[in-house]
Write a protein that binds this DNA or RNA. Structure first.
Length: 419
DNA sequence: TCTGGGGTCCTCAGACGA
DNA sequence: TCTGTCGTCTGAGGACCC
């Protein structure tokens, strides 16, 4: 059986997408992300990477490393539309497409080979289609499983150079008999699920490479890292990953959070922001026909200390008002007088809403009308006339309704954000 | 003027009922 | 009746991913 799991990753996706609509910026150091003082870098062009600018770095630091760079505020909805066109290209070659993020997906092409040829040829065709139709480049890894395919993609990527990307392989295939030779020299940090904390723990027991990890007794690894993670890493070091490519994925939670350009001190303002986020969470729930039972609140204070609180309701809900009221109750258990940097409201324990809903007193307004009906009516009006047209009074701020939308502030406040 | 947003999964501790 | 144990649920927090 040949390797038939494919991982496709767009090269510097957000920047590349911007260069398609702003070709005059080609060849320059370009950074996309949150342009405000509290923003982070979402993507850097290969010219900017040559200055040491990488994604997830604070915009502040990126500006210091590369003052000449052109900083663009990320445009999530534009990238999402480009992404959906790229995903459509994948679906020409196999129905088994599992999007990982806007710029990345797994494909199982095991059933497509009679029609489209071997995986390597399919990868070349996909790269050609994406280049011709979207003007973007991508890298592809092909291997017997998802974990190895993703690692293979890293080996296919371009490298940064001062005059732009130095082309990589474009497509890298890892066959069954090559697995150990491919994996052994890699640092443990390249394994899925190994971050800085686990790297430090492994380092303490003398493990820095996958070869050392593979040679380490499984029982000792479990003693050092715990049952789940120890067994997981032992499997990965041997190149074993049983996860299938799942075209249909179910969501388990959804949330909104926001870092404010300036810290919040007023209880009233904190309450308004909580209701604004709860309203958005409720709207998304209704749009997806989900109900949720557990309300989650996240608070980050001025000193970056972070607290989470949650409460499980007796009856699941999709009402922004109920979510907001409970989140407001949770925030009272946190001492916020030192200043709030970030607030987040989320919901988990999700069920499909067509299973029937048991109404609670919270769903019924004082005039006898049902809040759920009111919120659905607002959804419909916003659908027709825009999100600024109508909204609950509880989310009205000095700046107007400012409804929260998914990804609208994905990488932190923009440079021109008003309070 | 340093450190985002949206997720998933795991661990641990405490409460509670059998 | 009291005590210990076990499983389950809930809540908080941490690690990790893109």
């Amino acid at each position: 059986m040949t390797s038939h799991i494919m991982h496709v990753d767009m090269d510097a996706f957000f920047v590349s997408a911007e260069l398609v609509r702003r070709p005059e910026l080609r060849g320059l150091p370009v950074v996309v992300g949150g342009t405000g003082g509290r923003g982070v870098v979402a993507a850097a062009s290969y010219e900017a990477r040559a200055f040491g600018v990488y994604s997830a770095m604070s915009t502040y630091q990126a500006r210091r490393l590369c003052p000449r760079a052109i900083f663009l505020q990320g445009d999530h909805s534009y990238y999402a539309s480009v992404s959906s066109m790229v995903m459509e290209i994948f679906e020409r070659y196999t129905p088994l497409v599992e999007p990982v993020s806007l710029d990345e997906a797994f494909l199982d092409v095991g059933g497509s080979m009679r029609l489209h040829g071997p995986p390597f040829e399919i990868a070349q065709s996909i790269r050609r289609d994406i280049s011709h139709e979207q003007g973007l480049t991508c890298s592809v890894g092909i291997a017997p499983n998802k974990f190895l395919a993703k690692l293979a993609t890293e080996g296919a990527k371009p490298n940064p150079g001062p005059k732009g990307p130095i082309p990589g392989l474009g497509v890298k295939v890892v066959e069954e008999h090559e697995i150990q030779d491919f994996l052994d020299p890699l640092p443990v940090s390249s394994l899925w699920g190994v971050g800085p904390v686990t790297v430090a723990r492994l380092d303490q027991i003398g493990i820095t490479t996958v070869l050392q990890l593979r040679m380490f007794p499984r029982d000792s690894l479990i003693r050092a890292l715990g049952k789940t993670q120890g067994a997981h890493l032992h499997r990965l070091a041997h190149g074993v990953d049983e996860r299938n490519v799942e075209a249909q994925q179910t969501i388990k939670s959804l949330s909104h959070e926001e870092t404010f350009p300036e810290d919040l001190y007023s209880e009233e303002r904190i309450g308004t922001e909580i209701f604004r986020m709860a309203d958005a969470v409720g709207k998304r729930l209704r749009g997806l026909s989900f109900l949720g039972s557990t309300i989650n609140l996240k608070v980050r204070l001025k000193d970056f200390s972070t607290f989470t609180r949650s409460i499980t309701l007796p009856n699941p809900t999709d009402s922004g008002r109920i979510i907001g009221r409970n989140a407001l109750g949770l925030v009272e258990t946190v001492e916020v007088s030192s200043g709030v940097r970030l607030l987040g409201v989320g919901i988990s324990n999700l069920t499909k809403s067509n299973l029937g809903l048991q109404l609670s007193f919270d769903d019924v307004g004082s005039d006898g009308s049902e809040w759920r009906d009111a919120e659905r009516a607002i959804d419909q009006i916003q659908e027709k006339y825009g999100t600024q047209s109508i909204g609950a009074a509880s989310i009205l701020t000095e700046g107007g309704l400012r409804p929260k939308e998914k990804g609208a502030q994905q990488w932190g406040p923009s440079g021109d954000t008003k309070k």
